[in-house]
């Protein structure tokens, strides 16, 4: 729609089609008219003194309003065009020797990134994050769905490829779980906000094990509950196709379920982890050394069987943890310890 046509439209109609406009004006403490007022009349009727408080005048407000509409249209069309494949074309290691592996990451895939500190894991993740075009120290190139990303778009920061889930992350805002998810959903311009809140809330409670309510303040959630809410929220609401996990805490979150959820929601999951259970749950492991990808290991059948064993150990550990939490003594520690190492029975 042209700007002139939009200016002649009724504000009420425009807001119905573009609910984000409500937020735009509310942020400036401007109430929207419900009557037949056109956008042009409405904008002109706002007192200059009020606009000055927001460092605006009528012209800059009009421009800003149109810029915002344009941005939001691109934003929502981006959501529909989701990326299915990210290619990391080989660069070189710290000695300048060429990397042997080109890697293609596909949605619904879980990939572990392994290697000692200083081996170049962060470099790889940073290359993906900034859509490296042979212009980073590694010389790698990142393609989206097989194509070189548009440089202008890259510089605008519009496309954030990587969503992060890290142990260091916190909720900063003081809101209830429900209001928090609503705020995120509204900024993502989803149409069915209420059902999305319900979906995320249920998933988070399931992952956490310990129940909480929609009214619980996010800052009052336990470590496990916060992590569970963050995982559910990223899976169901984040715009980014890649989810980067640096560690999922042992306590309080069903780690395997969390991975399943992210895969189901068509994310590419990257995990920087040396936790055997998580690393073997991945489809592949990228082995990093001396700044380059030195090997790509597909999880083989033997390793998949090891997972069962690890799950057994995990359950036992959980049971012992529970005993301690409830104030019991863990009397058969040696027996339990022996069976932890020895048998694979659950």
């Amino acid at each position: 729609m042209t700007k002139t046509r939009m200016l002649d439209q009724k504000v009420s109609t425009l807001v119905k089609e573009r609910p984000y406009l409500l937020d735009f004006f509310t942020a400036m403490a401007i109430t929207l008219p419900r009557d037949q007022t056109s956008l042009k009349e409405f904008l002109q009727a706002i007192p200059s003194a009020h606009l000055t408080e927001f460092s605006l005048d009528h012209q800059s407000l009009t421009n800003q309003c149109f810029d915002f509409i344009e941005q939001m249209e691109t934003f929502s069309s981006q959501g529909q065009r989701s990326i299915t494949e990210v290619t990391i074309k080989a660069g070189h290691d710290k000695n300048g020797d060429p990397e042997q592996h080109e890697v293609v990451l596909r949605v619904g895939e879980v990939v572990a990134v392994v290697g000692p500190t200083g081996s170049g894991k962060s470099r790889l993740l940073a290359d993906i994050e900034c859509l490296a075009q042979k212009d980073t120290p590694s010389g790698r190139q990142v393609l989206l769905d097989g194509e070189v990303p548009d440089e202008k778009k890259r510089l605008s920061g519009d496309q954030q490829l990587v969503a992060q889930l890290s142990q260091n992350m916190n909720f900063v805002i003081d809101l209830s779980v429900g209001a928090f998810v609503r705020m995120h959903a509204e900024s993502r311009l989803v149409s069915d906000v209420d059902s999305r809140i319900e979906q995320i809330f249920r998933t988070a409670v399931e992952l956490a094990g310990e129940p909480f309510t929609l009214e619980t303040p996010v800052t009052a959630l336990s470590g496990g509950q916060s992590r569970a809410l963050m995982i559910a929220d990223v899976a169901c609401l984040s715009a980014s196709p890649i989810v980067l996990i640096d560690e999922i805490e042992n306590a309080g979150v069903d780690r395997r379920r969390a991975l399943e959820l992210l895969v189901k929601e068509e994310k590419i999951v990257l995990m920087a982890t040396h936790d055997p259970l998580l690393a073997l749950s991945a489809d592949r492991r990228l082995v990093i050394g001396n700044g380059g990808i030195v090997a790509v290991l597909e999880t083989d059948n033997k390793e998949r069987q090891t997972i069962l064993e690890l799950l057994g150990i995990d359950k036992r550990l959980a049971r012992m943890r529970d005993l301690i939490r409830k104030g019991n003594r863990v009397s058969s520690l040696t027996k339990e310890g022996a069976s932890l190492l020895g048998s694979s029975q659950v």
Binding site: F68, Q71, F75, G157, A163, N170, V172, F180, H184, M230
Partner: peptide
Amino acid sequence: DIVSQAEREVFAFRVR
């Protein structure tokens, strides 16, 4: 790096 992904996305949205 220390703020939840949800808040980061909301923050970027509000900047825009």
